[in-house]
């Protein structure tokens, strides 16, 4: 698959997960790798890029019985990007479904 395309989809997934609640890296990696076949290590460059873009912010929070965890939180700008990416994705997947002749849920 086109690497740029895959990156965009992964960014959409990460933003979607953060729409629900603030999460730390390991948490995000576990959720992501449950449904998508991806090396966990690929998540961190994406998170850093999103932070550099101002789509997410980070803060540290103490954890029980371990070092403090870096939590990621989506910003207003990130929500805006999320809406846009989601629209693009839905449009794209609808087109693919139309061409392949199947509906996603059948």
């Amino acid at each position: 698959m086109n690497i740029q395309f895959k990156k965009g989809v992964l960014e959409l997934c990460v933003l979607s997960m953060l729409m629900r609640m603030d999460q730390y890296g390991y948490e995000l990696a576990s959720t992501l790798s449950q449904s998508i076949e991806i090396a966990d290590g690929s998540l961190y460059p994406i998170l850093r890029k999103l932070a550099a873009d101002g789509q997410v912010t980070t803060y540290l929070r103490e954890s029980t019985g371990g070092p403090p965890r870096k939590y990621y939180s989506i910003t207003a700008y990130g929500r805006q990007i999320h809406t846009q990416l989601l629209k693009e994705w839905q449009h794209f997947s609808a087109s693919v479904n139309a061409i392949t002749g199947g509906r996603a849920y059948e």
Binding site: Y24, G25, D40, G41, G66
Partner: peptide, 30 residues
């Protein structure tokens, strides 16, 4: 530091270092 934290959290879930680094993938690729 991000990756160290990842290991720390994984070890807390009683995963092994080998398992975790395998799932993280190739350092050069990262």
């Amino acid at each position: 530091a991000d990756f160290e934290e990842h290991f720390a959290n994984g070890l807390q879930q009683s995963r092994s270092e080998e398992e975790l680094s395998k799932e993280l993938g190739d350092p050069a690729q990262i």
